[in-house]
Design a protein around this nucleic acid. Structure first.
Length: 202
DNA sequence: AAGAGGATGGCCT
DNA sequence: GGCCATCCTCTTC
């Protein structure tokens, strides 16, 4: 992990559709636990009918309209937490949903949080990822670029995203045809093999 | 003030 | 593959 550098907020201040595939392989560190991101989805704010930000600012989506480099955490189905990295400049909504990760460190803590499941099932879904890492509503708005001691998003220089797979996003009722899901080809920690139209873009 | 529905996951068959 | 738990947010009346 030597040489790992924090992701800079300026680097995230652009279109989440461009940011998302490059986030594959980056490392999310929460306390003693860490994962390498293997599956993400782009949500393009007010121009994306699938985004929570589609209808404009609300108390829930406020963070997504704020500066890049913060975490947008929301409750899903009243049960799970899901986490996004906010993109675009301050005032413009955009985010990348973190859907799955490969456990790197703190696997015992993840097992304790997730119960008796196979290791590949620890972080293979947005709700599972948050549960494994201990992410909840208290992380909504948290800075992942270094200002918040609890959490950090790092680039450790490895590039397992040489052949990301592009497909449609999962679980939506609007914007279902947009090819804005990206995952690492063949990674066992991906939530599902592919959405519709999965194609490898070397 | 009330109701519908959701960027899911776990357990069932 | 289907069902449903569980609750918050947003929309509408």
């Amino acid at each position: 992990m030597a040489g790992a550098a924090p992701i800079a907020a300026e680097w995230l201040a652009r279109d989440p559709i461009d940011v998302a595939p490059v986030l594959l392989g980056k490392v999310l560190v929460v306390g003693e636990r860490a994962v390498r991101l293997v599956e993400v989805e782009a949500y393009a704010g007010e121009r994306d009918p699938g985004s929570h930000a589609w209808r404009g600012v609300t108390p829930r989506t406020r963070v997504m309209f704020g500066p890049p480099g913060h975490l947008y955490v929301y409750r899903s189905y009243g049960i799970h937490w899901c986490a996004n990295v906010v993109c675009e400049r301050d005032g413009v909504a955009g985010a990348v949903l973190l859907r799955a990760g490969a456990p790197l460190r703190g696997i015992d803590a993840m097992r304790a949080a997730r119960g008796d499941v196979r290791d590949r099932d620890l972080c293979n879904g947005p709700g599972k990822l948050c549960q494994a890492l201990g992410l909840d509503g208290s992380f909504d708005g948290a800075d992942v670029t270094g200002a918040d001691p609890r959490i950090r998003l790092l680039d450790d220089g490895t590039s397992p995203n040489d052949d990301p797979v592009v497909s449609t996003r999962v679980g939506l009722s609007r914007g279902v045809d947009l090819p804005w899901r990206f995952h690492v080809h063949g990674d066992p920690n991906v939530s599902r093999p592919s959405g519709r139209g999965g194609t490898i873009v070397g």
